[in-house]
């Protein structure tokens, strides 16, 4: 780890015009985070991240990395240059996924064991609120206007719309079995919820008040792959809303869906048990974590092709890339 200090020091001395971005990948089994350079696709480092790191995100200034260390019942916060732990945040038990307010504060955390969403102040490191939700809360999304946080509960099979003002649930929408992930479009007019066991993505239209209406469902079909293996998990939408990428778990594929027609355009073969997705800031590339092949796949967003795979730690789970 000493050499990393050195490179960090060098970087601060030599004023570089454009710093390369770093991708941080949480390795659920390896208990580490792997750092990958998004220009050269070289692995820069791998550092200890606590027990069973899963959810991973980054502060808007790119300085702090948040990792949900599920088996430590805490969120660990790391310096993105030195990879040293700065402090931990109270998260409630078994944190898995979370979403950070675009301002950097607070952090909204799903606690699977307690049927709660915990709202944690990232500055004072205190819990601001605990919101009771359905059984096994998992996916977390935040509306671009920051008025709503959406949580999906895996056994209740709902998307809960929590007001960020009073932390009350304002809307509940039933979706298919085992909802895993919630993602708004950048204009806030659409919300996508993936259902792993149901094998579908529920598409909701969001009105001006933030209220949802189910607009349709996306389903998947790949010749030669059992329908049971087409299990949507992670999902990302391009900034212009034109392309939706959906990780299909044990089907080892990422579906590309047309944002306007909601038709599946293509299936990109990636590594095994593809789980979560993350864009580079310019959205030229999309990274996928492949839990059973211990690598990430780099997808060229424009060409919709897998261009590279990078070996990371054991059972990669989540991925986030530093902002510009």
């Amino acid at each position: 780890m000493k050499s990393l200090f050195l490179s960090a020091a060098l970087a601060s001395v030599v004023a570089m015009p454009a710093m390369a971005n770093k991708a941080f990948v949480s390795n659920e089994k390896g208990n580490t985070v792997t750092v990958v350079d998004t220009d050269t696709w070289e692995v820069l480092a791998e550092f200890d991240a606590g027990n069973r790191p899963r959810g991973i995100t980054i502060s808007p200034d790119g300085k702090k990395l948040y990792v949900a260390a599920s088996d430590d019942d805490t969120v660990r916060v790391f310096d993105t240059e030195t990879y040293k732990e700065i402090h931990t945040l109270p998260s409630g038990p078994d944190p898995e996924l979370f979403v950070l307010h675009p301002s950097g504060n607070p952090l909204y955390i799903a606690n699977e064991d307690d049927n709660l969403v915990t709202v944690t102040d990232t500055e004072t490191r205190t819990i601001l609120a605990e919101v009771p939700v359905g059984v096994e809360p998992e996916g977390m999304g935040i509306s671009p206007d920051t008025k709503f946080v959406v949580n999906t509960s895996e056994t209740t099979n709902m998307a809960h719309f929590i007001s960020t003002e009073d932390y009350k649930i304002k809307h509940n929408v039933l979706v298919d079995q085992r909802p895993r992930y919630a993602q708004y479009t950048d204009d806030g007019k659409r919300l996508f919820v993936t259902s792993e066991i149901g094998g579908t993505v529920t598409v909701m239209d969001i009105d001006d008040t933030g209220a949802p209406t189910v607009a349709g469902k996306i389903s998947f079909e790949v010749p030669g792959v059992l329908p049971e293996w087409l299990q949507p998990v992670g999902l990302k939408v391009t900034a212009d809303g034109s392309k939706i990428f959906i990780a299909l778990g044990p089907a080892n594929r990422v579906a590309v869906v047309d944002g306007a027609t909601l038709e599946v355009k293509d299936y990109i073969i990636v590594g095994q048990r593809v789980w979560q997705l993350g864009f580079t800031p310019d959205q030229k590339y999309l990274l996928t974590t492949n839990g059973n092949s211990n690598d990430i796949t780099v997808i060229d967003v424009e060409k919709e092709k897998a261009i590279k795979s990078v070996q990371v730690g054991q059972q990669p789970w989540g991925v986030v890339v530093t902002p510009n």
Binding site: P132, F161, K168, I169, K170, H171, N172, V173, L174, A211, P212, T213
Partner: peptide, 9 residues
């Protein structure tokens, strides 16, 4: 019951 608005009947 814990909230006001509802999307479900």
């Amino acid at each position: 019951l814990m909230w006001g608005g509802m999307s479900i009947d």
